[in-house]
Structure formats: C-alpha cells, structure tokens
Measured scan of single mutants.
Amino acid sequence: MALNTPQITPTKKITVRAIGEELPRGDYQRCPQCDMLFSLPEINSHQSAYCPRCQAKIRDGRDWSLTRLAAMAFTMLLLMPFAWGEPLLHIWLLGIRIDANVMQGIWQMTKQGDAITGSMVFFCVIGAPLILVTSIAYLWFGNRLGMNLRPVLLMLERLKEWVMLDIYLVGIGVASIKVQDYAHIQAGVGLFSFVALVILTTVTLSHLNVEELWERFYPQRPATRRDEKLRVCLGCHFTGYPDQRGRCPRCHIPLRLRRRHSLQKCWAALLASIVLLLPANLLPISIIYLNGGRQEDTILSGIMSLASSNIAVAGIVFIASILVPFTKVIVMFTLLLSIHFKCQQGLRTRILLLRMVTWIGRWSMLDLFVISLTMSLINRDQILAFTMGPAAFYFGAAVILTILAVEWLDSRLLWDAHESGNARFDD
C-alpha cells in the first residue's frame, strides 16, 4: 500500500549564491595573561575582544583620537594649579581661619623630617597626573615632529594605576569627618577644581587605549598563520617573532617567553612588605597634641575612634588600611606557593584573586592621604596640633611594595603550573 505524501511548494523562490571570495581570516594573537594562541577576527570600533580561555580583555573598544586626548590633557593642565594650590577646605580653629590644600599637606610631611613619605604622596597625587598630561601632550606634538614615541607609550600603561586623584578625593571626605570634632569646616574653591580634575582624569584614563596608539604610530604586520613560536610582548602586546637582537619589532624591548626574574622580584617585594606591615600596624601612625597632652593612634585605634562619629567612614578606612593590605599579602603568598608547588586545582579562583588584588591594591594609600591633609588643617603649635607617627613611612612603603609585587608577577606562570593543553579552566 503506497502512502500519498503531499508536496510542499515554497511560496518564495530560494536563491543560492556561491561564495565568490575567501572568507576573511583572523590574525593570530597570544593572550598576555595566559599565553593562549588564538585567531582574533577583525574588530570594529566600539567592540571589545576577550581571550577565549581566561576571559582577559585583549582589545578595548573604547578609543579616543589623539586630538581629543590632547584637549583633555590641556584642560587638566589648566585645572591643576587651582586643584593643588587653592584651598580645598576652610576650618575655623580657636577663632582663626585655616586653609588646607594639597601642596601644603605634602610640605608639612616633608617639613617634619619625613621627606620619603611626603614624596610618596607627591608622586601619586601630583607627579603621576602631571606625567600623564605631559605624556599625552608629548605624543600629540611628537607625532607631528617625527619624534620617538616608544618610551612614552611604554610608560603610559604602567602609569595608570599610580594616578590616585580619586583616592585622594575620598581622603578629603575622611579628613573632614575627623577634623569636624575640633573645628567648623567649609569647602574651599580649590575643592571644585579638584573634583573637576578627578572627573576629567577618570574619563581620560578610561578612554586612553595605549594598544590602539601603538597600532597608529607603529603598525606591524600581524601573524596570519598559526605558529607556536609566536611570542607576545608584555610592553606593547604585539604578537610576532623577535628581531635579530631578540627584541620586539614594535617597542624594541627584549621579547622573552616569560617575564625575567618574575618570581624572585615578586618574592622579594612580598617578604619586604610583610616585614614592614608589622611596625606599620604596631607603631603610632598619627599623633595629636591637645592642650599640651599627647595622644597617639595606631591604624586600628584611629579607626575605632573614627567609628564613634561615623561608622560608615570608619568601615571604608578599615577596608583600605587593614583589610586590603593583608588580603593582598595572603593572596600573593598563596599564588606564589601554588606556582612553586605546581598546583593544578582552583586555577579559576587564583586568576580571579590576582585580578582582584590588581584592582584594589592602590586604595591602601588612602590613610597616607588623610594624614597629609589633616596635617595641613590642624597645626596650632602646642594648643592643638596633628602630626604623623613613625608607622606612616612603614605603611606607605608596604603598600608600594605590594603594588610592585602584583605588577611583577607574570600571570602566565600560573598556567605553566597548571596542566598543559587546557582550553578551559575551572575549579
């Protein structure tokens, strides 16, 4: 018995066209964080690309023209004298008006014999932002004059995390709450300039795509075929072959399989920071003279006294001054041990922890910024005066060393310790 099946006739004509040209192939790229070699397709503007294995951002879609970056830099340069030299806060102490600005706080630190601690604050609040705007201006002028731009481009990517104007702005709020127990506070004209400078700096850093600047100024022929001998440069993120001198053909720094002496430098910085954190938390970090009496505060006791007036601000200072430094030390110690013992479990967790400490590390400088600003506000000789204690130097040095330890660690070593050939990683 035959089955009668109805015929289905399409209502619209289906047209099949042959592909007349070869589909576009992607360029081969190595991930600078996990060293995976993959094919990167062509990316349009405002599109980002991520590593298929570790999800690290390979290409950032946010990109401004150099002219727009230069305009932002010149605007920031105009704001800087007002943000640093004009009063941020006014207080009335014992019937006398006192003005506080950024430069005055750094000068008070240096004047009291601790120039190293003052230079830490100076670099993060004044030096690094000033280098940022002058570097962008150098790129703008240098591109037109045919100057060598490689050193500036190499420095810009590392400079971003040292620009800490946003953290200093939080420190202004913390210092205001600490001082309000002794005097009446009012915002100064410099505060508005400083807030504007923070906003412009944040926007500029978020749109400063150094890798795209490398592509514009020093374009290189990408690798179009897969080759395990391809290496990625950690300076400019170019994937290719080393030249005859073993250097990256684009930025001219040595092109090595792994960062040289990464573990040794990381261990040295980490152990030194552990040693410095002990006096930083045991010795007094601030000293207040009130009517001839002397009151010393460690980091913890200062947080407890701050909690009596504002528990939320005390929580912020606790996280930045105690929780973050010790968390960074514990995480980095764990990561280094996992590399030495070739741990194969929990790779995803370790990668996330490394990215976390990379982002939060700079916030530990908050305590030094609060001390710097408070020193310029309260300084009335023996009637009422505020000065920093010996722990300030140890704390600042420990924070900087932990930042350097994270920067010096080559994250690809975590993958080397893991089993080879993993296309995915999980716990």
Score class of each variant (00 low, 15 high):
338 S>H: 13
124 C>Y: 02
245 R>N: 07
418 H>F: 12
257 L>H: 13
250 R>N: 05
416 D>W: 11
249 P>L: 10
129 P>M: 08
212 E>A: 15
86 E>C: 04
416 D>R: 10
240 G>C: 11
254 P>K: 08
11 T>N: 08
414 L>P: 04
355 R>L: 14
385 A>S: 10
112 Q>P: 14
330 I>A: 13
143 N>K: 15
197 L>I: 05
44 N>F: 07
400 I>L: 05
138 Y>M: 06
361 G>L: 01
47 Q>S: 04
306 L>Y: 00
47 Q>W: 05
406 V>R: 01
55 Q>L: 06
25 R>T: 08
302 G>Y: 00
375 M>R: 05
394 Y>L: 02
245 R>F: 11
388 M>N: 14
425 F>E: 12
68 R>P: 02
351 I>W: 15
117 T>N: 04
283 L>D: 06
265 K>M: 09
376 S>Y: 02
241 Y>F: 13
34 C>G: 00
329 V>T: 10
261 H>K: 05
292 G>H: 11
350 R>M: 09
107 W>H: 15
163 V>Y: 13
163 V>E: 09
145 L>H: 08
338 S>F: 14
370 V>K: 00
7 Q>M: 05
60 D>C: 09
420 S>W: 09
7 Q>R: 06
236 C>V: 00
38 F>M: 11
113 G>H: 09
275 V>W: 10
242 P>W: 10
344 Q>H: 11
67 T>Y: 10
15 T>D: 05
75 T>K: 04
343 C>G: 12
274 I>M: 13
106 I>Y: 03
332 M>S: 06
66 L>P: 06
335 L>E: 09
281 N>F: 03
171 G>Y: 00
215 E>C: 14
91 I>Y: 01
273 S>R: 00
94 L>S: 01
5 T>D: 12
331 V>Q: 07
164 M>R: 02
141 F>E: 01
351 I>G: 11
90 H>I: 04
47 Q>F: 06
403 I>V: 14
319 I>S: 15
87 P>W: 05
147 M>C: 09
364 S>L: 00
90 H>G: 05
1 M>V: 01
90 H>K: 09
101 N>V: 01
37 L>C: 06
138 Y>G: 06
308 S>P: 13
81 P>I: 04
110 T>F: 01
118 G>L: 01
34 C>L: 00
244 Q>S: 12
256 R>H: 11
424 R>S: 12
225 R>Y: 13
48 S>M: 15
278 L>M: 14
286 S>K: 00
1 M>D: 00
370 V>R: 00
62 R>Q: 05
32 P>Y: 05
14 I>H: 08
267 W>D: 08
161 E>K: 02
213 L>A: 13
201 T>E: 12
350 R>Q: 10
153 L>M: 12
286 S>M: 02
278 L>A: 14
239 T>P: 10
421 G>E: 02
336 L>R: 01
323 L>Q: 06
256 R>P: 13
25 R>F: 08
127 G>E: 05
401 L>K: 12
278 L>V: 10
8 I>R: 10
45 S>L: 08
125 V>G: 08
360 I>N: 02
107 W>S: 15
250 R>Y: 03
402 T>M: 02
177 I>Q: 02
198 V>Q: 15
258 R>F: 06
42 E>F: 04
61 G>K: 11
367 D>G: 00
88 L>C: 02
82 F>H: 06
330 I>T: 13
349 T>D: 08
216 R>N: 13
272 A>V: 03
210 V>I: 15
152 V>K: 01
172 I>R: 00
180 Q>E: 09
164 M>D: 10
243 D>K: 10
143 N>L: 15
336 L>H: 06
244 Q>Y: 10
326 F>K: 07
279 P>T: 15
253 I>T: 08
302 G>T: 01
94 L>C: 01
260 R>M: 10
331 V>S: 14
362 R>Q: 04
203 V>F: 10
397 A>P: 01
381 D>Y: 09
295 Q>Y: 15
308 S>R: 13
83 A>Y: 03
238 F>N: 09
178 K>T: 01
101 N>W: 03
68 R>C: 02
20 G>F: 05
115 A>D: 15
61 G>P: 08
345 Q>Y: 15
134 T>Y: 07
115 A>R: 03
250 R>Q: 14
424 R>A: 07
406 V>Q: 10
418 H>I: 10
406 V>W: 09
415 W>E: 06
391 A>W: 01
382 Q>F: 12
21 E>K: 10
197 L>V: 07
106 I>E: 05
312 A>Q: 15
174 V>D: 00
338 S>P: 13
71 A>H: 03
330 I>E: 02
205 L>D: 14
70 A>Y: 12
74 F>W: 04
57 K>E: 08
230 L>H: 10
336 L>G: 10
153 L>G: 12
163 V>W: 02
194 F>C: 11
414 L>N: 07
405 A>G: 13
93 L>F: 03
294 R>P: 02
12 K>P: 05
57 K>D: 04
303 I>D: 03
3 L>E: 11
69 L>E: 04
163 V>S: 07
24 P>R: 06
412 R>W: 00
77 L>A: 12
28 Y>S: 07
